[in-house]
Computed example of a mutant assay.
Amino acid sequence: MANIAAARIQREFKEVVKSEEVERCKIKVALKNDMYNELEGTIAGPPDTPYAGGTFKLEIKIPETYPFNPPKVKFTTRIWHPNISSVTGAICLDILKDQWAAAMTLRTVLLSLQALLAAAEPDDPQDAVVAKQYKDCPEIFIKTARHWTNIYAGGPHRELDLENKITQVMGMGFDEGKARVALSSHNWDMERATENLLS
């Protein structure tokens, strides 16, 4: 890792670890190795969102060209959100692409990602299926996002009606993960989800 990038990320890492604001927002960062080029971030789902009570892990890779280029960040905890891929965890956020500025820091990135969970941008989606549900069926979106938060991020809210549908689809011989994705993607319509799994 280039010296400028290593020195800068070490300083920023300490800033995040010591920041009261970051601690108050329940954001953490940890080293994956001693090189400071791979970090693991953790952000808490913001209150009054379907992600509340969940803990989401992030993979953060620092390029050699940092801080002139943004870190590469993705969710390793599965999440149902218009701007985050429900399959790969890839994130659509302008500051991680063309709106990055060298003055931005790791703290900015982590706080921005937490803010994204509270204010989705469905018109610039990473996951078109989730964005469509967010816009067309907001109540179903909230239940689905809460369900995924409970299952994958340790969230407190169980959606028993949704869990029952997953159990029914599993009874047809499909595994739980595939059943959840098919039902989530088809607004929990059993018939459409099953057709999708059989096609």
Rank of each mutant, 00 (worst) to 15 (best):
E40P: 03
E40A: 10
T42M: 14
A44H: 12
G45K: 12
G45V: 13
P47V: 13
P47W: 07
D48N: 15
T49A: 03
P50H: 02
Y51V: 11
Y51W: 14
A52Q: 15
F56E: 11
L58D: 10
E59F: 11
F68P: 06
N69Q: 15
N69F: 13
P71D: 08
V73P: 13
K74I: 11
F75P: 02
F75W: 05
T76S: 13
P82D: 01
I84S: 01
I84A: 01
S86W: 07
S86K: 12
V87F: 06
T88L: 11
G89N: 07
A90F: 10
C92P: 06
C92N: 15
D94M: 08
L96C: 13
Q99R: 11
W100C: 05
A103V: 14
A103Q: 11
M104G: 06
L106S: 03
L106D: 04
T108V: 12
T108L: 13
L110Y: 08
L111F: 06
L111P: 04
S112H: 01
S112Y: 00
S112F: 00
S112V: 01
S112G: 04
L117K: 05
A118H: 05
A118P: 08
A120H: 07
E121W: 03
E121P: 00
E121R: 05
P122Y: 06
D124Q: 11
D124S: 14
Q126L: 06
D127R: 02
D127M: 04
A128E: 14
A128L: 08
V129L: 13
V130R: 03
K135Q: 12
D136G: 08
I140V: 15
I140E: 15
F141T: 06
F141Q: 03
A145T: 00
R146W: 04
H147T: 06
W148G: 00
W148T: 03
Y152R: 03
G155T: 11
H157F: 06
R158C: 01
L160K: 09
L160R: 07
L160C: 01
D161F: 00
E163Y: 01
N164P: 00
K165W: 04
I166Y: 00
Q168I: 12
G171H: 00
F174I: 04
F174V: 00
